[in-house]
Design a protein around this nucleic acid. Structure first.
Lengths: 225, 225
DNA sequence: GATATGTTTCGGTTAGCGTCGAAGCATGAA
DNA sequence: TTCATGCTTCGACGCTAACCGAAACATATC
């Protein structure tokens, strides 16, 4: 009686308490590291690793390796929909445990990530450029569109046509905001330009980037949705 | 360990192949006996009995004793909705793609989903009613507009003003089409009316709905965009 | 009553999987 | 380089639950 798709396989994946806790924690769309998920699920990292592998193989989550961390996020909104439907059946009051990022508010606000802007302001810039069509997400890569090229040339100046093999645009997952920001050569150039313009400067002995009041204004003028 | 909604418990219930087959078989809204379900699931009656007890305890099915038979049926349309959502995920994320047989084509074309019309013809009806302004999607609910009320009263007859607490319109995600079709009291009434009019009838032992040539014509006349 | 059929309970076996400790990689920092 | 951290692999243990045979229970029919 193979009347339909194999729902048992997927339901069994959700049916383990540890995995269910992990999936529930991922419901808000953020990406979490394997260790964080192991703590949420109440199991050791080894066990969590096995669970994440199964969830990935089953198509419920996607995993992205970044540095020595490995982030997991729900594979699609459809997965979230199924989880939500299940929660509805379970007649429950959902409680999601939030895991704060860096304690320092300044770090959360704006910091350098290797060589580019991260934190809330980094994700804001990235989101705005995506929304305006300056950047375009194609499969797993980020491409600079024609208007985006005009915009960046305008902002950076014409002499910045470096011809490097490094990717121009890269997506970098934010560890405080759990969303993406712009990395790659363009991300580096954008931050360098902001510092060169005097909008901001790096704090000594820290990754914090301090924007001047005027720099903050200019930034908001350029990247407010 | 803080427990939110216990989705793991419910998912684990669906996660066993035998139980999943049973639930899938119950998706057509009919009530089946324990022995029938045991044959469908491919297990002995003893095993099926244990499974049915667990499903009943978990609130997924209801069981009524009638004579020396014991009938099982899905506990609620919400359960059917969860199963449909799971089928949708299983078709997209399942790396094991089944080759479509002739029976699958019929299922994809028109089938019963708990008590309402699903498949291509179900989504066609839903889309057409949305496009014509008979239905309106507001946030997460579907509302019947004024012209829509006229239309359905015209089609269903004036005596169908049931005053139930069940939602009139509900959206149900189709696993074959990956789009929505109309569920809820109205969805149920629409299908019942089509069968009463002789447009279609349910195939024995399957969820397939067979439209007569004339019924298909009438349907297309009413729901072609 | 006796008999047949549908369903459940009991006992025991087996297989699967969730779990962790220890060790092995991989990557970033000093 | 050396060290530290995050993650994965391996091996083994233990527990749950799915399964069936046999038998008991329930209900309809003769």
């Amino acid at each position: 009686m193979k009347d339909g798709p194999d729902i048992a396989r997927i339901a069994a994946l959700i049916g383990d308490p540890a995995r269910a806790n992990m999936l529930t924690a991922l419901m808000d769309g953020r990406a979490l590291t394997a260790t964080e998920l192991s703590q949420i699920a109440g199991v050791t990292p080894q066990t969590a690793s096995a669970h994440l592998a199964r969830l990935g193989q089953g198509g419920l989550i996607r995993q992205r390796k970044q540095g020595r961390h490995r982030y997991a996020e729900l594979a699609s909104p459809e997965v979230a929909g199924v989880l939500e439907a299940l929660m509805g059946l379970a007649t429950t009051s959902g409680h999601l445990r939030r895991r704060p990022g860096p304690r320092d508010a300044q770090l959360r606000r704006a910091r350098v990530c290797y060589d580019h802007l991260a934190g809330e302001m980094g994700t804001q810039m990235f989101d705005t450029m995506l929304a305006r069509g300056h950047l375009f997400r194609r499969e797993d890569e980020i491409v600079l569109t024609e208007p985006g090229s005009d915009f960046t040339r305008d902002f950076l100046g014409p002499e910045t046509q470096t011809r490097s093999r490094a990717p121009l645009c890269r997506e970098c997952l934010d560890w405080s905001d759990r969303r993406s920001h712009l990395a790659g050569r363009l991300g580096r150039a954008m931050l360098a330009r902001m510092i060169a313009l005097g909008w901001a400067r790096r704090a000594e002995g820290s990754r914090v980037i301090r924007f001047t009041p005027d720099g903050e204004r200019q930034f908001q003028a350029l990247f407010s949705s």
